[in-house]
Design a protein around this nucleic acid. Structure first.
Lengths: 186, 186, 186, 186
DNA sequence: AATGAATGAGCATTCATTCAT
DNA sequence: TATGAATGAATGCTCATTCAT
């Protein structure tokens, strides 16, 4: 069986990280262990402990990668840069964006939020959370002033949180109106 | 040997909940197990599993109690009921309240937020989170309309989250201004 | 709430036994505990331990009741007594009977066999097993001689066992032929 | 301290299986746990869970080994292959074989039957039971046709079952006569 | 007579980590 | 360099039984 035991496997480390992200997506951070990562990556247990001596090492690597490929961030950038769509204002655009995000891949939404919220208890993750917050705020600041951008991000965060934590439905018109109020009055 | 084994202990359930809150405060939700709760409450392991068949049951009880004894809620009520303080508007009051809360017992703040955020991945906690959200919103609605109250709560949630997750300092004036914008325009 | 706490409940013991049988049917003997019986009977745990001090007491009572209401036994009697059906011989009738039994309520079949086989390791159940064996043999002996009846019962037992233990399909024609060979040659 | 902890122990898996068989022999399947197996094999608990992730895995291995080393099977082969003993026919040989088996190591007989019968409620064991059934039937089929072999095995199973479950004595002459009837009539 | 509370023992299983190869 | 084997600790949870009421 040629190739059955891949002795030289330079991508293995990367594949373990991807597998770890998959595990967190499906079973939460609490479900990430050396074993679950090894199983998801289809590598021996010893391989995960070899490449990531402790679980924290693996978690940090996973978060870093999640940050890089963060879907929401890309979407944010695409939507909030460039000339504004002619027929909708910023508040309506953001409200619609939230609606699309929340009604899309829910597992992905939860994955991103869980990683983000994990910073509450893991100081090591705070720089990553701060980076993400800064990136989103900066993207929004291109369409308004920085202070307003921070307020918008906070409000959007709180709105999403309510949906995700209480199971309440997302009310796009409510969100649009709240975000609109936060904009500077011409 | 009378009294050597306290078979009759009517407050035991309550003491276990308190112990669970202490454990979560000090070691996070991940540190809460039947065993750690039993040790913290100084009761046998079987006692925790008897009163709370699953860990989720214990977590729900803990979150509910945290809500009940939530300092912030009491303060909310005190601040938002009765005639408004003459020399400060609602936005300034809420911004000051957040500042006091965030600069007070930080471990307590993290405890409450961690329990609240845990609902993201634990559906059993969602009804409790929803209750809490509803109670806070209702308290605020007495000073404004319900839709505005929801927007205020979301914004405050998002503002706190940023402080807690990124380590950024709390900017009371920023918060005041954002909350003020959310109020209906006279 | 009238009747909500039924203080005097003379059928409770009986209901617990019925519940125990239901538990064994669904989860096997290994699944029968004071707790599962209490839950199935919708009575407090203390009620099961009160009426049946040990689990064995409950198990014995359950087996006795199963024996009484043994469906297969009734069917056997109905089929093997009275004048023989004109157009089928004894072997064909028994083979058909087995087929009907095995293709009917499989949980019931497994319940009965599990209780029966439990006598292997529980001497207390052997008299019950012996009684059942004797009853079936006696019913068959009315249509042939006792020695042949015992052989028929043994063969039927072995045939069922193969189906139940290996998952092999029941082959009625094979069974009919084997049973026919066991009959005395005219 | 060389040798103080035997990290390298290539036979450990085998010893655990043997220990499991010993446990089942003495305390029944219900008495087989990871812990009892570990204690009987004089290995740490983790060693049993490492080699057999679930109890069913251990049970399957035990049943397979019991089958392999099944004394009866060896005897079967010896008795049923080669030229038939001149002075006894197949039925008499099998009846004698059963008698020897049932009057020999009774704990061993019960061990094997208990493992075999456990397939009734444990689907994981069914393939092993089917293998065993097939092997015995194939051995017998060398002395007669397959259909007759299956009938003989079923009858022998039923005969043994009656002895084991009801405590009735084994009647070799009855058995011989029943098995003889099952043979094809020349 | 009946039962809620209690508890120590035990369960299968998972785990991070170590170690010999 | 890589990994199968190993292990002690811990996990959530179930249990039969006891006991005070």
């Amino acid at each position: 069986m040629p190739g059955s035991n891949r002795r030289h496997d330079p991508d293995r480390r990367d594949r373990i990280i991807d597998a770890a992200l998959r595990v967190v997506r499906e079973r939460g951070i609490a479900g990430l262990t050396h074993r679950t990562a090894a199983a998801a990556a289809d590598v021996p247990l010893g391989s995960t402990t070899y490449h990531f001596a402790t679980l924290d090492d693996l978690l940090v690597a996973a978060l870093r990668r999640a940050d890089e490929s963060h879907a929401a961030r890309a979407v944010f950038s695409a939507r909030t840069t460039g000339p504004p769509p002619p027929d909708e204002d910023l508040a309506a655009g953001l409200a619609r964006l939230l609606g699309e995000w929340l009604s899309g891949d829910r597992a992905g939404v939860e994955l991103e939020y869980e990683l983000y919220l994990a910073a509450l208890r893991r100081p090591a993750l705070r720089p990553v959370a701060a980076e993400w917050y800064g990136a989103v705020t900066a993207a929004l600041a291109e369409r308004t002033d920085p202070r307003t951008a921070r307020a918008l991000v906070a409000a959007m965060d709180g709105i999403c949180l309510r949906v995700l934590l209480t199971g309440a439905p997302y009310e796009e018109e409510d969100a649009r109106q709240a975000l609109a109020r936060l904009l500077p009055r011409g």
